[in-house]
Design a protein around this nucleic acid. Structure first.
Lengths: 215, 215
DNA sequence: GTCTATACACTGATAGAC
DNA sequence: GTCTATCAGTGTATAGAC
């Protein structure tokens, strides 16, 4: 056995260290990109947050843009996965309610990702334009079909599904993207558990009644 | 009359030129800041868009940050002024409906301003934190009082005014801040007049019914 | 007031020792 | 694989001619 390239322990260990390093860098990058934007973020600052020398970042991610691209991709996939609750529901109040809960939980637990996504889209989606045109468009069309079925079945009013989805995205992501403004208006304090609960309940109630959900 | 500092024509002419130049620069800066973010924007690019040499920008605005500050301030004031329709209304459906119309019109006509504002808040409002704590807080408290009066008068359901306002801001500004995503999902075409009208009607209908407006 | 030329700092990226 | 030292390029800001 002259070949050692397949020896499991060493290979695994190497892969592990690489994955750990990449995850560490991606996490630091998400934080810095969300706070400073792509242009305002520096590789030096990301390296400092990750606790690594700057050159290591360029070893794992050749350019600043490639690092940013992976950050945005990771956010997009997490976000899509969490959105699947939409399908496992009988009617609009249940499905949309679960979707609001899921998205509000993301806004609360991972506001950085939401901000990076918002910033990317606001600047014309230079990096993830293809995702918008393919994956996001397909997901959206699928959800529109579900909503149209609910309408056809008389389970909710005849609301334009597209504008309903935009309202759901806007309202839930607002609590992440504009979290600083909300906290300031809240007496410069982060929302409490109870206030997050109130926010969810208010949104679900307004939208559920607003679309005439009857499930 | 040895003093000529008060001579109206010359003084006016000078002031006019200064105001014109400042307005030109502010307009170019708003555009560039909204497309590239504060960190991504360069004084050179703003100068090119304005059609002026770079040094002229520093003559009218000493630093990049001072220029950015004035852009954000201008947006904030325009936005506050347009929000006053809230008060000249008898009930929630009329007042909130007019507010939605006004904010959607801003999103449509001045999406750049909305994006700059969003970016500023997302990055922790480093420049306009004091506005959030004073002017915006006062405006918000005033509108909360109006909504609470409507609730007390039985003109709408007992919705938390704060979360209702956040929903209004989120939904209307989404059409500016995420306009690129919406256009992409619209077949890579900007929304037509009719689609903007549909958006407004859908939002007003969902929210008006969602809060049980009875005016 | 306006513009050209330039100073000075910083950034992304890399070379090369370990 | 990891890190120090460094380069080339670009950014803000200013000095000084006009």
């Amino acid at each position: 056995m002259p070949e050692s390239s397949n020896s499991p322990p060493k290979s695994n260990s190497k892969k592990m260290r690489r994955q750990e390093a990449e995850a560490l860098i991606l996490s630091a990058a998400e934080k810095v990109f969300s706070e400073a934007g792509f242009g305002g973020a520096t590789m030096q600052l990301i390296a400092d947050v990750a606790g690594l020398p700057k050159a290591n970042l360029h070893y794992y991610f050749p350019t600043k843009e490639s690092l940013y691209r992976q950050v945005v991709q990771k956010i997009f996939l997490d976000w899509l996965k969490a959105a699947d609750v939409f399908d496992h529901a009988d009617g609009p109040a249940e499905g949309i309610g679960a979707y609001i809960d899921a998205k509000m939980e993301i806004s609360r637990r991972h506001p950085e990702g939401s901000k990076v996504w918002a910033s990317e889209v606001m600047h014309g989606a230079p990096v993830i334009q293809d995702y918008l045109e393919t994956t996001l468009k397909e997901w959206t069309d699928g959800r529109i079909a579900v909503i149209e079925r609910w309408i056809a079945e008389g389970r909710m009013d005849a609301i334009d599904p597209r504008h309903l989805l935009y309202m759901l995205w806007a309202t839930t992501q607002h609590y992440a993207d504009f979290g600083h403004q909300i906290a300031t208006l809240n007496g410069s304090t982060e929302l409490t558990d109870a206030q997050w609960q109130e926010a969810k309940e208010n949104i679900k109630r307004i939208i559920s009644r607003g679309i005439g959900a009857r499930d």
